[in-house]
Structures are given as structure tokens and as C-alpha cells.
Write a protein that binds this DNA or RNA. Structure first.
Lengths: 193, 193, 193, 193
DNA sequence: CATGAATGAGATTTCATTCAT
DNA sequence: TATGAATGAAATCTCATTCAT
């Protein structure tokens, strides 16, 4: 990726996180990124295209931050907690990314995303979560997890991590390690059989 | 509230739920509501003001739907489930309201809401939730709940109800009663001591 | 004139003096006057009509303040100074009226005023000035005044009084009696033969 | 200054002189200037900003027209008359500018001008006038002028020139050279000791 | 690759005026 | 007389996008 592309994505991220989609004109993105409007249109076909590209970029960075090499070798509760905390930490240390994702995923942009060339389930991050949960969850055999819909398991575990982190960002508060451990434990309790 | 105010709020809700904030011009709201643009500005100072007012309106309706008269008389786990299901049902039966809330609460509108005259903790709905959880949760005495931050308890209980309902709306799928009971039970398990 | 008419004219005067014609909506006039918009249209056919009526009202008040009964009996230089100071005092003690007149008389409103039913030379105040100057000024006979166009005489005498007063209003400064006397004397010197 | 900026200022001047501030929509300015509305907002932040800029532009042109190289070398009364006539001629030969100035300087725009970034006494033209009068006027030493406030001297001299010219424009009449000389002489008589 | 002046459709907002009550 | 909700044409202003350089 060119240096200018990076600058454009960074500027877009910051501005949308603070001001929202419709309050972030292309001209402001160009100014913040220190580039011309023209060059933005050289790399991205339209504003929507830029926003969708930014979403994929941020999602990929998030997925990367969750990567744990030796997941298979850890005992299940530990593997679970490792990823839970990784997700939490990513959100807390990337507030702009978090605020952007919040808006994007809860707006009509997301619902209509597949029209823009990417399917929801092509996203790496979702795949990683599903992979982890599926490690424990075999609906038709012996499972370490309760027999609940995948989305319920997801919400009660990683969804909670995300929410806790986002809350901390918006309210500028934070939780200490001990409390986080308790919450992670409660999540495990909710989903473990 | 005047009849036209109601028509304006209804039209705004429908349009924003379907099209998003910035794809919903005032002219379209006026047309859908069957009123003139001018009268909207008679009741609301600006588009933003209208959106904030709509949020308060929807939130109040939601809070009202949660009201249960005999909460105090029910045994704790039953009282919990009663409200959990009420919240779930409200979302499932009010998809427009739900989609609107999704967008609003995850956008800069929500973060900047206090600028519009209402503080987050002034919202009736928040108060009702806090009230219920506090029924069980006495940090310094005997509590039925785990010793976790209020926000964690909230997320693991009602937050989950909301998410499940919203997911159902977006994906046009639905969960049967048995499954809902299991999820409610898992929530209770997560937060109960 | 009804009490409400007076309130309307007063409100209009204040608002236009402070905000200008185009920044003074009828709704604001109504609010400031403590009446409904409807009643304004009962008394005045349009906003322009109201403004023209206000002009005539203010001009008449001004003319009235200049009245001096025994002009004919005073020696010329004294008569001159009497009116000069009256004009100055009116402006200084009626800043809103003055600012309104400034705008009105230098805007296209004034140029097009005759279209609204009043001719410039029908104005009482102009008549009084002309009368005074004509007392001294007989172009074809013996005159106390220089042989200059009436408008030049007017500008060098009363025009100066007006300007000095207006300057004082805008800059919130004021001149003491002695200085005013000197200026009045200089004016007389300019026009007297 | 870009060519389009000039076209915009010219169009604005013509239209406001003829129609007044509030009867001159931006769309009309754009059409008259042969440019798009957008480009006006590229150069000027708002309609008010455009109007203030136009005022500074016209005032600067006026100041430039008064410049006389050898003022110091002329005998005082001649130097005075040179500038007096220059001012008169500028107004007579620039009716649009004159009508615009009339409206602007007698409206709240002028009073609020300092809010727009320019102080009254920063105007070149004012400086030139003050400079000239100060050449003759030393309050604490020997002066050729009467001991009057600067503003009085200004009004009795250049103020009169401006008024005479403006009157001629509005009434489409004009004064011959001989009469102008008499008026200039009367002005000098008013202010000279 | 890169710029940013230029466009103009369309957005938000204003406000003189009307009219049912 | 008196009200003020209601209208909608028209105003100001925004901004995604284009294109000559």
C-alpha cells in the first residue's frame, strides 16, 4: 500500500470516528491526510468505496491482533480467555477503530455491504471467532459448550468483551486486570456446559 | 403532542431505519409525514434536534414496555426473566425502532447527546434497568449477583437480550421459546452468584 | 393609534436598528411586541408596508422635535443654532430612531419610497428645513446666505449636525456643549455670506 | 486575485447597488458573474463574508483614487481642493460603488464590521483622510485649521464632498465646475482658522 | 501520479404570508 | 379583533465528483 493510501485511511478513520459518516466531507479527509482530493479518487472510486475499504482494513487489523499460534495446544478455558482478552485489548488500545466499527456495523452501510463486493462471512475476524467456538462446540457430539445458537454463544462471550471495551472508551473509564478476569470467567460460565 | 408531531416522528423513524441518517432528507420526511417542511421546523429547531427528540421518544416507549407492576412480588429469577423477555419482545415487535436505536446509539449522535439537553443517565430506560439489577445487587451486603461492575452485569443480561433480538431482525430469522428460555437461563447463570 | 400598533412599531424599530431589515423576521417582531403575527397583518398589508409606515412615524416624531414657535422672531444666527441643536439632540437621544433612519434612507427602500404612496418632498421634516433655509436664502434678491444649491447649504448645516450625532451614537462617544457651539458656528460660517 | 473572484465582486457590486442586500440572492450573483454558486463559497465563507470583502475592495479602490503624489509640495488650500475634487469625482464616476457604500456604511454590516476581521481604523481610505487633515491640524501648536474634533473637520470637508456626489447620483443631476469650486471654498472656510 | 478549482444537484433552513378557529 | 399553526417558495450553503493542467 502506498504511503498516501495509508494517510488517507488514517485520516478517514479519525474523522469518521469523531464526526460520523455524513459529517466528514472528502475535502476534510484530503486536508487531514495532507493530500489532494484528486488522489483519493485515484485510489478509491467513491466515498462509499473508501469507507468500505477502510472497514476491511480495520477488520483485518483486528483479526490479526487476535491471532494466537498455539491455540490448539492450550487447555480450552485458557484458550478462550487468551482470545477474549486480546479482543478487549484491541478495542481499548484502538479507540478510533472501535468507534468507526461501531458506526459502520450498525448502519445501513453494513447491511448493504455485500453489494459492495464483500460478504459478511468472508471476514477473517468472524472466521476466527467461529473457529474457536467450533473447537468446543459440536452440536451433534460431545461439546464443552451449551447447546445454544452460535450467535448466542458469540454474544455471551466476545460480544461482551467488545461491549465492555467500547463502554470504557466512550466513558473514558477503565477496568483493572482482576475485574477483567472475573468477567471473562463469567462469560465462560455462561457458555460452558 | 400534536397529531402532526406524531406523524413527523413516525415518518422520521421509518425513513432513518431504512435509509440511515444522511440518506433521509427533510423533504422526504415532510412528504412521508404528509406535512410541509416548515411545520417540522416549527416543532424542531433542526434536523439534529428532530433526531435527538425521536431518540428520546423511542427510548421512552421502550422503557414503558418494560414496566411490570408486580416485580417486587416475583421470585428473583422469574422477575429477571420477565423483564429479559419483555425487552426481547419489544425489539422483535418494533424493528424500525430497533434499527433506529442501533444507528443512533452507535453514532456520534449518542456520544454528543448531552449537548442536546439530555444526559445519558436521565433516560428512563437506563433507570429501570439499573433499578432491577440493584434489587439483587448490593455490593456491600448479601447479594444474589456476582461482584461485577454494573455495566458488566447489564451487558451479560439485557445487553444480550437486545443483541439477540436485533440479530433476528437483521437476518429475518427468529428463535423459538425453548431456545430463548435457555439463553435467559445462561444469562442468569452468568450474573448470579 | 392602538396600543398594539405602538408596540409593533417600537419592536420593529428596535430590531431593525440592531439587526437590519433582512435580519428581522416578522415572527421576531411579533414576539418582541408581544402580539401575534396575525395582528401585524391586520394593521399593515405587508412587511414593506410596515417599514414604510415606521419611517413616516419616526420622521414625523423627528419633525415635531424640531418645532420652534418663535423662529421668525429670533435673530437669524440664533434661529439657525436653535434648530441645529434640536436636530443634534434628537439624534443623540433617539439612537434607535437614528440607526433606523440611516439604513432606510440609504437603502433601495428610500429610492423606491414614492412607489409606496409618499413623496420625498411631502415629508414634514424636509419642509421645515427648507423653510428655515429659505428664510435666509433668496437666490434672486438680497440673501444672508451664500449663493449655493440648497442641497449644499443643507449638507453643510443640518447634514453636519446629523453626522456628528450619528457618529457619537455608533462610537458611544459624546461632545460637550462648548464644542457643539463651535461646530454650529463653523456651519454658519460655511453657509453665511 | 483570480479572474473569477473579480467577476464575483463585480456582479455583487452591481446587484447590491441596484437591488439591496437582501434582494440579491447568491444564485443571481452566480448567474450574473457567469460562475457556479459553488465557486463563490470556495472563495468566500458566506454571503456576509463576500459583502465584507467587497466593501474592503471598494474602499481600497477609493483610497487609491485619492492618491496625489505631490501633496506636500502644493500650497495647503490647493492640496485640500485637489483631494476634495478627487473624492467627488470618484463618487460621480463610480455610481455603483457609491450606492453600495451608502448601504453598507449605514447598515449593521458596518457597525459589526470589526467582527469580520477588519477594524474601521485599519481602512486605507480613512488613514489617507486623517493624514491630510493632520498635515494642517496640530492641536497643540500652530494650526491652519480650527480647533475642532477631527471628525467634525472631516464631516465639514470630505463628508460634504461625498454627500454632494451621492446626491447627484441619486437624483441624476450634476453640478458644474464653478459651483463645485464655490462649495469647496465654503468647506475650506468652515474648517480653516 | 497529482492537484485543487470548478461544478451544480440537492441538502438544510428561513420567513413572508395565509387562514381556520 | 386576535391567534399562531401551517404553508412552500426561495434562500443559503454543502459536498461528492470531475477534469484541465
Amino acid at each position: 500500500m502506498h504511503e498516501k493510501q495509508k494517510a488517507i485511511l488514517d485520516a478517514t478513520l479519525d474523522l469518521i470516528a469523531e464526526r460520523g459518516f455524513h459529517n466528514t466531507p472528502m475535502s476534510l479527509i484530503a486536508k487531514r491526510a495532507g493530500v489532494s482530493i484528486g488522489i483519493i479518487y485515484h485510489y478509491y472510486a467513491s466515498k462509499d468505496d473508501l469507507i468500505h475499504a477502510l472497514f476491511r482494513h480495520v477488520k483485518a487489523a483486528f483479526a490479526k491482533s487476535l491471532m494466537v499460534n498455539d491455540l490448539q495446544e492450550l487447555p480450552p478455558p485458557l484458550a478462550f480467555r487468551r482470545i477474549w482478552l486480546n479482543a478487549y485489548e484491541f478495542y481499548r488500545s484502538h479507540p478510533q477503530e472501535t468507534l468507526f466499527l461501531e458506526q459502520y456495523e450498525h448502519s445501513p452501510y453494513y447491511v448493504h455491504m455485500s453489494l459492495a463486493g464483500t460478504e459478511h462471512d468472508e471476514l477473517e475476524s468472524e472466521e476466527i471467532f467461529a473457529q474457536l467456538l467450533n473447537m468446543y462446540h459440536r452440536p451433534d457430539g460431545d461439546s464443552l459448550l451449551k447447546d445454544l445458537p452460535l450467535i448466542a454463544l458469540y454474544t455471551l462471550s466476545f460480544g461482551t468483551a467488545a461491549r465492555m471495551a467500547r463502554q470504557g472508551i466512550v466513558q473514558a473509564s477503565s477496568l483493572d486486570h482482576e475485574v477483567l478476569d472475573s468477567i471473562a470467567a463469567a462469560c465462560w460460565q455462561a457458555i460452558a456446559r
